[in-house]
Design a protein around this nucleic acid. Structure first.
Length: 782
DNA sequence: TGCGCAGGTGTTTTT
DNA sequence: CACCTGCGCA
């Protein structure tokens, strides 16, 4: 298509929809447009500085997205063709939100054509168009982490290596790290340091695995997540005409979350923006939390050196949180050495202090939070969706789920398995993958005997062997199976499998993706096999497959809008869904539920009420980070991200005891807690982080367990003068009691054997607590 | 070939 | 604790 034509047609459309008056206004007006008036001076400058390299250092809650979206809208108002603006984000959600907000500012349909998307999805789209240049089919498959691991696993097996040593996870991490630095397997094998590291860890063959893995992916017509970057870089560096095409095309390039870019992304950005140098990066070094996947804060530190005449604008006014939260956040991040100097401030109210809460166990932590949410809702009429629980690791979610469920508080967990990662969905999709790309060996192996059709492991192994010996694909072997010496039942089964897959392929030429998928469900026997089973899980699986079919239907039936760049082929659909994450699940955003997510997943979000949980040494900061200064600083940035999600109320909780790997362990409070100035923190429900040594007699569970320093809470109840502990025998539910330190409360429930009764007591100041009567000193009040 | 059970093993964080 | 793997049995 001709760019000039598009350019004029866009303006033409604009004039029609907005009227010439609006158009002329922007050309001739003395004053500013409304959307610019809404900005503060720094934001405004960031929007108006359209030409040349620009770095916006945007503190948490400083209106970063507003600036980015207004800037893009402004460029379009200036007449820039939407096809010529590229904006890269890290999540689909961020991309979608930006698109919607731009649309809202413009009020016409023009935002549609913008290149806004994640690095991975935009590059996938470009690579699809350019695939032949780098020897890939345009319907290449995208391997998610599971697919990649499974390829590695079979390579390790075929090399007869020790599977205990060569774990797919470890190997994939090594390969991924290499790719993120644009290392090929050749570079990897030639790098002295890397080789030494692998030798030291007794895994000298990783380089060879890397080589085989790369070759296998290529043979399968598949790219993993990292390949999308590597191949994009390869395309631009080895095909000058492609480079020049995209350099010309993207006159304006914007990068969101620049602090999270890795080396590969850095170089691609640099190449793409080299011609016009209208490169605008937005980021916050204090929120760089993805080094484990190759991101380097260095990119943002070095930006000023990379380009001449860089304009740097700092957005330091926070519009989100109370003063208490902002000032505490500032104090914490100051403990990091490496940072771009800036100080967040806010005009918002001082607000309540940050509430530090210590609980006995991880379960108590969950209970405390469920209670608090309920109480807070009753008192201040908050909706469920005004609350978020943020944790360091996914595994922590359980106690919150249980307690919220017990309180009948609806919640939703972001993260975990996304819909498209469920086994039954991946199985179904494997059919579609093979239909679109027969080279995809991983997918064939997944379905060749699913549902069961008598093609066993030995048969599959034989096919793999033949394929690699003759250097042909798995599909080529099975599509002419008798030629390779197979006969009998297995050969018959394979033949009918191939015939079935072929029939799907020819269908795809005439029918839409949904019709084909529906036929796959029927003809393959998947639907039948799922329906014939009777457990609840099977029913759920069946429903999930139905849901997938619905999704495909929706995809096929959404009509192409005029000028829209949507590729409606099944191949494009498959690529997109692999790049979806669980955060992208649709239709649930406006539901009124409590949000549970990792801190990583919470970046960019905000909630009136936030619980940051598990603030304990070895958990947050994670034990993996304790011995490396850079890692520790990243944990601190993560803590900073966590607390700056809160608008009004922030609780930080930690448990004295926590189950981990099925064992109860005790941890000290997180070191980050001590970094918050006392004036912003309410410690009345916490032991003060600075007091370390406490006796342990309240805590019989802890005896004999791998013991760090354990403490009891620093409660300030003043014991009544006539306090004398009563014997547990006389205690019953509903009784009012006084605890030596917890104060007055009422026994809600009694559980356990007579010799070791556990009471749940609701204390007037502390809420519910579980107490072991044999150890507690309780006085019966009445 | 397919299923059930015992044992081992692992936790950061995710496109 | 919870998942996954591998092995043994039918």
């Amino acid at each position: 298509m001709n760019n000039f034509y598009n350019h004029t047609s866009t303006i033409h459309k604009y004039c029609i929809t907005q009227g010439l008056i609006g158009y002329n206004l922007f050309l001739h007006s003395q004053g500013m447009q409304d959307y610019i008036k809404e900005l503060n001076p720094e934001q405004r400058e960031a929007v108006l500085h359209t030409e040349g390299p620009l770095m916006i250092v945007a503190g948490a809650g400083s209106g970063k997205t507003k600036v980015l979206t207004t800037r893009i809208a402004h460029l379009m108002q200036l007449g820039v063709d939407s096809f010529r603006i590229l904006a890269l984000t890290f999540t689909n959600k961020a991309a979608k939100e930006m698109k919607e907000r731009i649309e809202k500012i413009l009020g016409n349909g023009n935002a549609r054509n913008l290149y806004i998307g994640t690095f991975h999805s935009i590059f996938a789209r470009i690579l699809r168009a350019e695939a032949l240049n780098i020897g890939y089919p345009s319907n290449f498959t995208i391997y998610d982490t599971d697919d990649a691991k499974s390829v590695i696993k079979s390579i390790v097996k075929s090399m007869n290596l020790d599977e205990k040593l060569y774990k797919p996870n470890i190997i994939l991490n090594r390969i991924s790290a290499a790719k993120n630095n644009l290392y090929t397997y050749k570079d990897y094998k030639a790098d002295f340091d890397i080789q030494q590291e692998d030798t030291r860890s007794k895994r000298p063959e990783i380089g060879l695995i890397f080589e085989k893995y790369s070759q296998q992916c290529f043979k399968n017509g598949a790219m993993d997540f990292d390949d999308l970057l590597v191949n994009m870089y390869l395309l631009l560096t080895t095909h000058p005409e492609s480079l020049s095409k995209y350099q010309h095309k993207f006159r304006y390039v914007l990068i969101d979350e620049y602090q999270d870019t890795n080396t590969a992304q850095y170089h691609i950005i640099k190449l793409l923006a080299a011609m016009h140098e209208n490169l605008c990066v937005v980021g916050d070094d204090a929120q760089s939390i993805y080094s484990f996947r190759g991101a380097t804060v260095k990119n943002i530190f070095m930006f000023q050196k990379d380009y001449e005449d860089v304009r740097v604008i700092k957005l330091e006014q926070n519009y989100r949180s109370t003063k208490s939260i902002i000032l505490a956040a500032n104090a914490i991040i100051e403990h990091n050495e490496k940072q771009i100097k800036k100080k967040l401030w806010t005009d918002n109210v001082e607000g309540e202090k940050i509430k530090l809460v210590c609980t006995f166990t991880d379960n108590d932590e969950g209970k405390f939070i469920a209670d608090t949410i309920q109480e807070k809702q009753l008192r201040d009429h908050y909706a469920n969706s005004d609350f978020a629980i943020l944790y360091r690791t996914n595994a922590q979610s359980r106690s919150f789920e249980e307690n919220l469920r017990r309180h009948n508080i609806p919640y939703r967990i972001y993260g975990g398995l996304s819909f498209y990662q469920r086994k039954e969905i991946k199985d179904f999709i494997a059919y579609l993958r093979v239909i679109v790309n027969t080279q995809d060996e991983e997918a064939i192996k997944r379905i060749i005997n699913y549902p069961v059709r008598g093609i066993g492991k030995t048969t599959i192994q034989k096919i793999i062997l033949i394929a690699s010996e003759q250097n042909i694909t798995f599909w080529e072997v099975i599509s002419d199976i008798r030629k390779y010496g197979f006969s009998g039942r297995a050969a018959n089964a394979i033949e009918s499998f191939v015939i079935m897959m072929r029939s799907f392929q020819t269908m795809l030429e005439k029918k839409n993706a949904y019709d084909v998928a529906a036929e796959v469900g029927k003809a393959s026997g998947i639907i039948k096999s799922l329906r014939s089973e009777n457990t609840v899980e099977d029913l759920a699986r069946f429903e999930n497959v139905q849901e997938l079919l619905n999704a495909i239907k929706e995809f096929t039936e959404t009509p192409d809008e005029e000028g829209e760049l949507l590729d409606k082929s099944l191949g494009s659909y498959l690529q997109q869904i692999t790049l979806l994450t669980s955060a992208d699940q649709k239709g649930e955003e406006d539901t009124n539920v409590v949000t549970l997510m990792t801190i990583h997943a919470s970046k960019g979000l905000e909630f009136p009420n936030v619980f940051v949980v598990g603030a304990e040494e070895n958990l947050f900061p994670s034990q993996m980070s304790l011995y490396d200064k850079d890692d520790l600083e990243e944990e601190r940035r993560l803590f900073y991200v966590a607390i700056t999600r809160a608008k009004a109320n922030l609780w930080i909780t930690y448990a004295n005891n926590r189950y981990r790997f099925g064992q109860l362990v005790s941890n000290e409070p997180s070191r980050f807690l001590e970094e918050m100035p006392e004036e912003y923190v309410d410690t009345s429900n916490a032991r003060k982080p600075k007091n370390k040594a406490f006796s342990n007699q309240m805590n019989p569970v802890n005896r004999g367990i791998q013991q760090k320093k354990v403490s009891k809470a620093n409660y300030n109840h003043k014991v009544s003068a006539d306090f004398k502990a009563d014997s547990p025998e006389g205690m019953t539910e509903g009784m009012k009691v006084e605890h030596q330190r917890f104060g007055f409360g009422e026994i809600k429930t009694l559980e356990g054997p007579a010799a070791n009764k556990i009471a749940t007591i609701e204390f007037s100041t502390l809420g519910k607590k579980k107490i072991m009567l044999n150890y507690a000193k309780l006085r019966i009040v009445k």
